[in-house]
């Protein structure tokens, strides 16, 4: 690069989030919101249930968003988004994107009924789940998105989480959702490409963003991007999309030779795990990745 030539970012400059939001330092959730809004633009209405973002958005009379924001009850994101959509439809507004923006608790657990209902009806909404893998806003209690082996305050080290993480994408695919995808903030172009694709599709769309939480994962603040990247490279959180409920595509392949331990050892929520636990996780991740590859292959022949 020539000296004097300005470094040019390939990320759009427009921002629909302000500084001064009150997320914990190192939180991936505001980063995810920022990237998503850069793509979605000002014609967006956000619906946010009880979750970390209730706080991040700022208390009355402040808001860290430059788009309209409707706070809603914990379990109602998808139903409330359906309601906003219905009004826009009846008023003839076809341009505005209605986004449900919820954490893993509000999506995998308490909100799954409303989500299933909305997706089954194929409501014209974009649902984005930022998944920090536990009830972080209430102080790190396990959710059905908490991975096997993890410590939380309700799965203490003496008896850590003993269930696998719920496969939310497969649940949505079973609804034949027009578009579902995973993303992380370590791959912003991939994330934004998916949001852009989702924006252009009519019907229900779902994006699952892994959202590292330094306090909850017992991890230094500066490791958010690294942890996000390693989640992808190890295959723990593969980046892929499913179109029309059947066409699987891996958008960023995992990296050969990066063991799960690279990811696990960054986080003290896994500090109690023994070498054989690492092996168990490695085996499960390998098997799940193989299954995903088979789905990709299978969908190529469809």
């Amino acid at each position: 690069m020539d000296r004097g030539q300005a470094l040019k970012t390939t990320i759009p400059e427009e921002d629909y989030m302000t500084s001064g939001h009150i997320a914990c330092s190192g939180c991936a959730a505001p980063i995810a919101m920022r990237y998503c809004l850069k793509v979605l633009g000002e014609k967006t209405i956000m619906v946010v249930p009880a979750c970390c973002w209730t706080i991040i958005a700022g208390p009355f009379p402040y808001s860290s968003l430059k788009v309209p924001l409707l706070h809603t009850a914990f379990e109602t994101t998808a139903a409330a988004a359906s309601g906003v959509r219905a009004t826009l439809d009846i008023k003839g507004d076809t341009e505005t994107t209605v986004v449900g923006w919820a954490g893993d608790g509000g999506t995998f657990d308490i909100g799954i009924q409303a989500l299933s209902g909305a997706v089954e009806r194929n409501e014209n909404i974009l649902y984005i789940c930022y998944d920090n893998e536990a009830y972080m806003n209430t102080g790190i209690q396990r959710s059905s998105a908490t991975p096997w082996g993890a410590w939380t305050t309700t799965t203490p080290a003496e008896r850590p989480e003993d269930k696998p993480k719920k496969d939310i994408i497969e649940i949505l695919v079973a609804h034949q959702i027009p578009y579902a995808a995973t993303a992380t903030v370590a791959y912003p172009h991939d994330l934004m490409a998916k949001v852009n694709k989702a924006k252009g599709i009519k019907g229900s769309r779902f994006i699952h963003i892994l959202s590292p939480c330094p306090p909850g994962w017992r991890m230094p603040d500066e490791l958010t991007i690294k942890a996000s990247r390693l989640a992808v490279q190890t295959g723990i959180f593969p980046l892929y999309e499913v179109e029309s409920g059947r066409k699987y595509t891996i958008t960023v392949p995992r990296k050969e030779g990066v063991p799960v331990g690279e990811y696990l050892k960054l986080q003290r929520r896994f500090a109690h795990l023994k070498p054989e636990d690492y092996d168990t996780i490695q085996n499960n991740v390998d098997r799940a990745y193989d299954r995903l590859l088979r789905k990709v292959k299978q969908s190529e022949t469809l």
């Binding site: 409707l70 906003v84 409303a114």
Partner: peptide, 28 residues
């Protein structure tokens, strides 16, 4: 009746959708 009718999956979602729709400016 020129209205959007949402066949929600529970009464809880019915009221949630009405709240959001009303907040967006429709008579619900």
């Amino acid at each position: 009746l020129k209205a959007r009718y949402i066949n929600v999956e529970s009464e809880h979602s019915a009221m949630a959708a009405c709240i959001a729709a009303e907040q967006a400016g429709a008579r619900t």
